[in-house]
Amino acid sequence: MFYWFLKWVAIGPLLRVVFRPQTFGADNVPPEGPAILASNHLSYADWLFMPLTLPRRVTFVAKAEYFTGTGLKGWLQKTFFSGSGQVPIDRTSGDAAAGALASAKRVLGEGGLFGIYPEGTRSHDGRLYRGKTGVARLALETGVPVVPVAVVGTDVVAPPGKKFGSFTRPIVRFGRPLDFSRYEGLENDRYILRSVTDEIMYEIMRLSEQEYVDMYATRAKDLAKEQAKDLAKEQARARAEEKAAEDSRRQAS
Rank of each mutant, 00 (worst) to 15 (best):
M215P: 02
I192W: 01
E211G: 03
E211Y: 05
L207Q: 05
D179H: 07
V213D: 12
L207F: 08
E209P: 00
R182Q: 15
F180H: 01
D198L: 04
R219E: 15
I192T: 14
R206L: 12
Y212V: 09
M215N: 05
E209L: 01
N188M: 04
D214E: 15
T218H: 11
E209Q: 13
V196A: 02
S195V: 03
F180M: 04
T218K: 11
E184V: 08
M205P: 00
A220D: 04
S181T: 15
G185N: 12
A217R: 02
R182L: 14
N188R: 13
E203K: 12
I200F: 05
K221Y: 11
R190S: 14
A217Y: 05
V196D: 06
R219C: 06
K221L: 14
R194G: 10
I204D: 03
D189G: 07
M201Q: 03
E211V: 10
M201P: 09
Y183A: 05
R190I: 13
T218L: 12
Y183I: 05
E184P: 01
F180G: 02
I200L: 07
D214G: 08
D189K: 05
Y202M: 11
D214T: 08
E209I: 00
V213I: 15
D198W: 01
G185M: 09
S181V: 06
V213T: 10
Q210D: 08
S181P: 00
T197W: 05
R182C: 10
R219K: 13
I200W: 02
R190Y: 13
I192L: 09
V213R: 12
L178F: 04
D214P: 07
Y202G: 01
Y183G: 02
N188P: 01
F180P: 00
D198P: 01
Y216L: 14
T197D: 09
Q210G: 06
V213W: 09
R194H: 11
R190Q: 14
L186Y: 06
Y216I: 09
N188Q: 13
S181G: 10
Q210P: 01
E203P: 03
Y212S: 04
R206Y: 07
R182P: 01
L193V: 05
Y191T: 12
E209C: 03
T218Y: 12
R182A: 15
D214L: 06
Y202A: 12
I192H: 00
Y216K: 05
E199N: 11
A217V: 15
E187Q: 15
R194L: 11
E211S: 10
L193W: 03
E187P: 00
Y191C: 03
M201L: 06
L178W: 01
E203T: 09
V196N: 05
K221T: 11
M215D: 14
E187G: 04
S208Q: 06
Y216P: 00
Y212N: 04
Y202D: 15
R182I: 13
K221W: 09
R219P: 00
Q210L: 04
A217C: 12
S208E: 03
L193M: 09
D198S: 09
S208V: 02
A217G: 08
D189W: 06
F180L: 09
V213F: 12
A220Y: 05
A220W: 07
R190T: 15
E203M: 06
I192A: 04
M205A: 14
D179E: 13
L193H: 04
I204V: 14
L178T: 02
E203I: 03
E203N: 11
